[in-house]
Amino acid sequence: MQLIFTKGSGKYDRMDIVRNGLPAEGIDCPKQGIIPHDMVHFGVEITLHKRGFIGRVLHGEAATFQMEAEPESDGVERLVEIFQADGWSGWNSSPADMLDLYRVTCDARQCPPLQLSIDDIDAVRKKLLELTALWQAVAMGASLVLEFE
């Protein structure tokens, strides 16, 4: 599956999803000052090999904002939120603090947390920083193509 992120000039970027045998789908991604939300999903899911939004779309679900609750996917969503917050604060939160905040967030949302280590947090952050560098190099109106299998 290809995820094609296009940098928009207004309030939105765009993600187009190209899957074998299914119609292409597109999502407008509100700009948030860091990489797009769904690019954070890509980084988390491809690094940890967990099934979240991107994995569910890969397996045929429609790319909508209202998916049915699913424990692993919900745990991924909470982790994406933690990494977004880390990005907004400069990508320099302590991994131990991020794990603590992740557990608190999961408890508050009554969501089983993924089993994660500090090494997992470091690996995801490394991937997100790579994606950030790639995204920053994309010109307005141009695209970044990511492969997800």
Rank of each mutant, 00 (worst) to 15 (best):
L3A: 06
I4F: 05
F5W: 03
Y12N: 14
I17Y: 02
G21K: 04
P23T: 07
P23G: 02
A24Y: 06
E25L: 10
G26C: 11
P36T: 10
P36W: 08
P36G: 10
M39V: 07
M39E: 06
V40Y: 04
G43W: 04
E45V: 10
L48C: 09
H49A: 13
H49Q: 15
K50M: 11
R51C: 13
I54S: 02
G55D: 08
H59Q: 13
G60M: 02
G60L: 03
A62N: 11
T64D: 10
Q66P: 00
M67V: 01
S73L: 03
S73P: 05
D74G: 03
E77W: 06
R78G: 01
D86N: 15
G87L: 00
W88M: 12
S93D: 09
A96G: 10
L101T: 13
Y102Q: 02
T105S: 15
Q110K: 14
L114N: 03
L114R: 02
Q115S: 14
S117D: 02
V124G: 01
K127I: 02
L128Y: 01
L128T: 00
E130W: 03
L131Y: 07
W135F: 14
W135P: 12
Q136D: 15
A137G: 12
A137F: 04
V138Q: 03
S143C: 09
L144P: 01
V145G: 04
V145Y: 04
E147M: 13
F148Y: 15
F148D: 06
F148E: 07
